[in-house]
Nucleic acid binder design. Structure first.
Length: 684
RNA sequence: GGGCCAGUAGCUCAGUCGGUUAGAGCAGGGGACUCAUAAUCCCUUGGUCGCGGGUUCGAGUCCUGCCUGGCCUACCA
C-alpha cells in the first residue's frame, strides 16, 4: 500500500485582528492532526493564509493611516509569529491578496460562467454618500424599529427583532457617520439551486461531514430551493475586480476558500510540485478544519465551486465548536480574551496544546477552558506522571546507557505497543481527548513498575548493577513510547526526548520497538509545573489592554472615530424620569420655515413663520440669531413644540418653540427632520 | 417558535451491539515510600445514570413525554 497523500487546511484567519486563544483551538487541532499523519508516514501538507479582503480591512487600514496592502502585510507577519510560537507549522502561509489567488479566482469564475451558473440581479442596498460606497448590514447602525433601542446593528437588535438595514430608524454609516441612502446596484449571483442534487448527494453521503452538520444542512437549506448566492460587491472594495464585470468585486467569501488552493500553489512553485497532483488527483485527500460559524460556506458554496471548477472535493470537513472560558463566552472585560502573544509572554505553549487535546473531541461541542483544571491537568498528567517517569530513571543510566538487550518487563512494553493502534484511531478520528486518556493510562502502568522494582534500593549494592540498569531501561522505554504517542501534541517535548535518548522521534513505528544498548544524555527538566501566578497575570494584563483600546465592535469603532466628550451630559444631567404620558403632553411637530427675519431690537431673536402644512401657520420667536442667518433657514424643516401656550413677548406673540441644542450663543443647532418627513408630522 | 446536541461521583469525562456488581482521572480520607519537579505507589469514601412512562427475561444504553443547559436558526423546515 502506498502512503496516503493528504492536503490539510485551517480556516484563513481574517487579517483584521490578532490571533487569540479562541483561534488557537482550530490551529492546534489541525496541527496535531497533521503531525500525527506525518508520523504515520503520510505525505501530509498543511496550508493556510491570511484572509485579507473586505470592507473591514479598509476601515482598519484607514484607522492606522496606512494602505490596505501595508496593513495586511503587518497582520500576516504577526499572525505567523503567533502561530510559530505555538509550534503550528504550515508548509505554506499565503495571502488571499496574491496573484496566484487572483488567477485561480478568474479560473473558478470562468467555470461558473461556462456552467451558466452566474446571473445578474439588481438589488437595493444602503449607500454611504460620503464614503461613496455600499454598506454591508453590519456597517450600518441605528434605532430598532420595534423596541426603540439605539445604536443597533443593521440586521438585528438586542431585543431579538430582525430587519433589514433599510428598516432602521435614523441609520448611520459606520464608515463616515453619514446617513445612508437606498440605492440600486447590480450584483452577480451564483444560481446554487442548479447544484442542488449534487450538494444533496455530497453532503448527505455520511462520508464527508459530521452527522449533526449533515442534518443542519438538510434542515436549513437543502429542504427547499437554494437561494442564489450574492457573490459580488460594487466598488470601492478591497479585493479583486471581476474581469468581465468592471466596477464589481468578488465578495470576500468567494476568494477566501480559493486561497487554500492559492497557498498550495505558492508551495508547489517553490518546491517543483504540481498543483494538479494536490488539487485534481482523486488520490489526494483534502481535509478542511473550520469552526462551526463558517459551516455553510464550506459545505455548500465551496463544494459547489470545487465541483464546477473540476477540483478535488473535500474528503472531510472537520468542524469544531467555540472556546469558552470558565463556562462563559470569552470576554474582554473579564480578561479572558487572551491574545496568542500575551499567552506566550507568560506560559509554555505546550500547556495549551495538551490542554486543548484533552478537551477536543470529534463533535462540534464548544470546549471550555477552566483555569483551575488547566493547571491541574498539566501538573498531574504531564509533570507528575509522564515526565516524572524519565525524571526518576534517567540519572541511573546516565553513565551506563541502556541495557544491551531489552529486559523482561511483564509485557508492559508490548501492551503499550498494542495500544498504539487504538490511540492512532482516536487521533485519526480527531478524538484527541480519547487519545490522551489512552496514553495517560500507559503512564499509569509505567510508574508502578518503577515503584515495584525500587531502583533506589538496587543502586545501593553494586551487585545489582545489572538489575538497576534493566529497571531503568524499561522505565525509559515506556516513557519513550508515551512520548512518541504524545509527539503530535507536544512536538518540542518529543524533540527534547529524542535528543536525550540519541534517537530522534520521526515515526509512529518507533513505538513498537524498544531501544537497547544506547547511550543516554544528561537529563534536564523537560517541563515545569504551571505557575498559577502567571496565569492570573496573563488574565489581568488582558483586562488592562482591552480597557483602553476596545475597538472590536462597530459601535465602538464609531465612538472612537467621533470621540464624543462626556462633559456635555455632565454639564446638564438628565432630568427626572418621566412617563410616556408626560412626554406625550408635549406635542412636537415637524414644521417648515416659510419666513425668517431678524428682530432688530432683540439681541438673540429671529422671528419665524412656520407651516404645519396647509394653512396652519405659527409665528415663533427663536433665540438663534447668533447662529443662523434668516435666509439659510427659509424652506428648511424644523421641529417645533406646537402645543406650547402662546406667550406675549415684547416683539409680538410667540406661538411655540423651535427645538434646538447647543451651548448657546453661536453654538446653537436647530433640529431638523430627515427628508421624507412632512410638515405636521408628530414626533413620537 | 423550530432544529441539533448534551445531562452518569464534588469536578472533568468513559461506558462498544441492550447483558454480570456502572468505570477512570482529579479532588477528599487513610497508609507506604524517598529515585523523582511537595512528584510516586497502595487502599479507600463517594452515584435515584436529569425526571416520569413504555418496550424487553434484562435499559445508563432503545422508544416517548417533560425539565435543565449549550449551540444553531427564525413566522420557515
Amino acid at each position: 500500500m502506498t502512503s496516503r497523500r493528504i492536503l490539510v487546511t485551517s480556516a484563513l484567519p481574517y487579517a483584521n485582528g490578532p490571533i487569540h486563544i479562541g483561534h488557537l483551538v482550530e490551529y492546534i487541532q489541525t496541527d496535531i492532526w497533521v503531525r500525527f499523519q506525518r508520523l504515520r508516514g503520510a505525505d501530509c501538507r498543511y496550508f493556510c493564509a491570511d484572509d485579507t479582503h473586505g470592507t473591514a480591512i479598509t476601515i482598519s487600514a484607514k484607522r492606522n493611516e496606512v494602505s490596505e496592502e501595508e496593513f495586511i502585510a503587518k497582520m500576516s507577519a504577526e499572525h505567523q509569529t503567533d502561530f510559530a510560537g505555538f509550534a503550528i507549522e504550515f508548509d505554506n502561509y499565503g495571502s488571499t491578496n496574491s496573484e496566484e489567488n487572483r488567477e485561480l479566482c478568474a479560473q473558478f469564475w470562468k467555470s461558473l460562467r461556462d456552467a451558466d451558473l452566474v446571473i445578474e440581479k439588481e438589488i437595493e442596498q444602503l449607500y454611504d454618500p460620503e464614503a461613496q460606497q455600499f454598506l454591508a448590514d453590519r456597517f450600518v447602525r441605528g434605532t430598532c424599529p420595534k423596541c426603540g433601542r439605539t445604536n443597533q446593528p443593521g440586521d438585528n437588535c438586542e431585543c431579538g427583532h430582525t430587519y433589514t438595514p433599510a428598516d432602521l430608524i435614523d441609520p448611520v454609516s459606520v464608515l463616515s457617520g453619514a446617513t445612508p441612502e437606498l440605492r440600486k446596484a447590480t450584483h452577480l449571483f451564483v444560481a446554487l439551486e442548479k447544484l442542488h442534487p449534487f450538494l444533496e448527494k455530497w453532503s448527505q453521503s455520511g462520508e464527508h461531514l459530521q452527522t449533526e452538520v449533515a442534518n443542519y444542512l438538510k434542515g436549513h437549506f437543502l429542504h427547499e430551493e437554494l437561494r442564489d448566492w450574492d457573490i459580488s460587491r460594487p466598488g470601492p472594495y478591497f479585493g479583486f475586480e471581476i474581469p468581465d464585470s468592471p466596477g464589481n468585486y468578488w465578495y470576500v467569501w468567494f476568494d477566501a476558500p480559493i486561497g487554500y488552493i492559492a497557498s498550495t500553489w505558492e508551495w508547489c512553485k517553490r518546491n517543483g510540485e504540481s498543483l494538479d497532483k494536490w488539487w485534481k488527483d482523486p488520490e489526494t485527500e483534502v481535509h478542511h478544519f473550520i469552526g462551526k460559524d463558517i459551516t455553510y460556506f464550506h459545505t455548500l458554496f465551496w463544494p459547489g465551486m470545487l465541483q464546477t471548477a473540476g477540483f478535488t472535493l473535500p474528503t472531510k470537513v472537520h468542524i469544531h465548536g467555540f472556546l469558552t472560558v470558565g463556562g462563559e463566552k470569552m470576554s474582554k472585560s473579564k480578561g479572558t480574551f487572551v491574545k496568542a502573544a500575551k499567552y506566550l509572554e507568560h506560559l509554555d505553549p505546550a500547556y495549551l496544546r495538551y490542554y486543548y487535546a484533552t478537551k477536543l473531541g470529534p463533535r462540534l461541542d464548544d470546549l471550555d477552558l477552566n483555569v483551575a483544571e488547566f493547571a491541574e491537568k498539566i501538573d498531574s498528567d504531564l509533570v507528575g506522571k509522564v515526565v516524572n517517569i524519565a525524571s526518576r530513571c534517567a540519572k541511573f543510566v546516565q553513565t551506563t546507557g541502556l541495557s544491551a538487550a531489552y529486559p523482561d518487563d511483564d509485557g508492559r512494553f508490548e501492551y503499550a505497543a498494542q495500544a498504539g493502534e487504538e490511540i492512532a484511531a482516536a487521533y485519526e478520528a480527531c478524538d484527541y481527548n480519547r487519545a490522551m486518556r489512552l496514553i495517560l493510562e500507559l503512564a499509569d502502568r509505567a510508574n508502578p513498575f518503577i515503584e515495584a522494582n525500587k531502583p533506589w534500593e538496587l543502586r545501593k549494592d553494586p551487585a545489582n548493577a545489572q538489575a538497576l540498569q534493566d529497571v531503568c531501561t524499561v522505565g525509559i522505554n515506556l516513557f519513550r513510547q508515551i512520548i512518541i504517542y504524545l509527539s503530535p501534541v507536544l512536538p518540542k517535548l518529543a524533540t527534547e526526548v529524542g535528543a536525550l535518548l540519541n534517537d530522534p522521534i520521526t515515526s509512529w513505528d518507533q513505538s513498537q520497538t524498544p531501544l537497547a544498548g544506547t547511550q543516554i544524555n544528561k537529563f534536564e527538566h523537560l517541563m515545569k509545573r504551571v505557575d498559577t501566578k502567571r496565569v492570573q497575570a496573563m488574565i489581568d494584563e488582558s483586562k488592562e489592554e482591552t480597557a483602553d483600546a476596545d475597538a472590536a465592535n462597530p459601535a465602538d469603532e464609531i465612538a472612537a472615530k467621533f470621540n464624543d466628550s462626556a462633559d456635555v451630559l455632565a454639564a446638564e444631567p438628565l432630568a427626572e424620569e418621566c412617563t410616556i404620558d408626560d412626554f406625550m403632553k408635549v406635542d412636537l411637530r415637524v414644521a417648515r420655515v416659510l419666513h425668517a427675519e431678524e428682530v432688530t431690537d432683540a439681541r438673540k431673536l429671529l422671528k419665524l413663520t412656520l407651516s404645519l402644512g396647509g394653512d396652519e401657520r405659527r409665528q415663533v420667536f427663536a433665540g438663534i440669531k447668533a447662529a443662523y442667518k434668516p435666509e439659510d433657514l427659509i424652506g428648511r424643516l424644523v421641529v417645533m413644540v406646537a402645543n406650547l401656550k402662546p406667550r406675549q413677548m415684547k416683539f409680538g406673540l410667540s406661538e411655540g418653540m423651535v427645538a434646538a441644542a447647543g451651548e448657546g450663543g453661536a453654538e446653537v443647532f436647530v433640529l431638523t427632520a430627515d427628508e421624507g418627513a412632512k410638515p405636521g408630522h408628530r414626533v413620537h
